[in-house]
């Protein structure tokens, strides 16, 4: 008898080509993410990571293939699936003239929360990212690290099961980076499935349970960090492995 555990996210043969583009941004991508797992999505600029995240988060419609989130097919149950997905975009997607609390309350309200439930969740997330004391200050007065942490908290306010983090540690100091890493660890321990895109190889090595490397819209390799290193014995680090897989040519 097979013990079948349904993955949180199942992506099969995903394809997406932008209008007027000559080549697909994502082609034949297969991914799975289970609860309590962090999948690192690595690749040079233009590899298709952000496009893949955009399609999974329902921002872009899949042109080919199938995506299910907790068994819900995105092509038929998009709105239900949205309720369990949390997206932290690459940009600081926050209103600078609002406070962190106001930002989180607003984005939380778009997930149907209100009143004391919303206030409690906002307070909890602010506490998780270490911003409780400055929660009522305008975001445009924050440092880069504080903005990043607020950006992450806004993705988590509705307690999503599948979390999509698009380069969440860009431009932050060591202290904020550590806090974000710890928070991701807690989310994993809580059973969330996480897709994590980054250019920081050490970060991916230490945080991710599995790593998928993309280039030219395709997944070129996938496995646990130790599996990948074992399969490429000539590479002393994940960064060397990454360069050997994707080449040394500049991409942008």
């Amino acid at each position: 008898m097979t013990d079948f555990v349904q993955p949180l996210l199942d992506v099969t043969d995903l394809g997406y080509t932008y209008p007027k583009a000559t080549a697909p941004a994502v082609e034949g991508l297969n991914l799975t993410v289970s609860g309590g797992e962090v999948l690192g999505l690595l690749g040079p600029n233009g590899a298709g990571k952000t496009t893949a995240v955009s399609v999974i988060s329902t921002l872009l419609p899949p042109q080919r293939g199938k995506i299910t989130v907790i068994g819900m097919d995105l092509s038929t149950s998009q709105n239900k699936a949205r309720a369990v997905i949390g997206l932290a975009p690459q940009e600081i997607a926050l209103y600078g003239s609002l406070t962190a609390r106001e930002n989180l309350s607003y984005f939380g309200s778009l997930y149907g929360m209100k009143g004391s439930e919303l206030a409690d969740r906002v307070e909890r997330r602010l506490s998780h990212v270490g911003l409780s004391e400055r929660a009522d200050e305008r975001v445009d007065t924050y440092s880069g690290g504080m903005k990043r942490r607020t950006n992450l908290a806004a993705a988590l306010v509705h307690d999503p099961r599948l979390i999509l983090l698009d380069e969440p540690t860009v431009g932050v100091d060591a202290q904020s980076r550590r806090l974000i890493m710890e928070l991701i660890g807690e989310l994993r321990a809580g059973g969330a499935g996480i897709i994590y895109t980054t250019h920081y190889m050490e970060e991916a090595h230490s945080l991710c349970d599995r790593i998928a490397v993309m280039d030219d819209g395709r997944k070129i390799v996938e496995g646990t960090p130790s599996e990948l290193m074992a399969a490429h014995p000539g590479c002393a680090s994940l960064e060397e492995l990454f360069i050997s897989l994707t080449g040394q040519g500049l991409r942008d």
Partner: peptide, 19 residues
């Protein structure tokens, strides 16, 4: 659109036309 707030809004279950 440029700073990503719209992506958050569209990715949420609340209908975009209502927002």
């Amino acid at each position: 659109r440029h700073d990503g707030m719209l992506r958050r809004i569209i990715a949420a279950p609340a209908p975009t036309v209502v927002v």
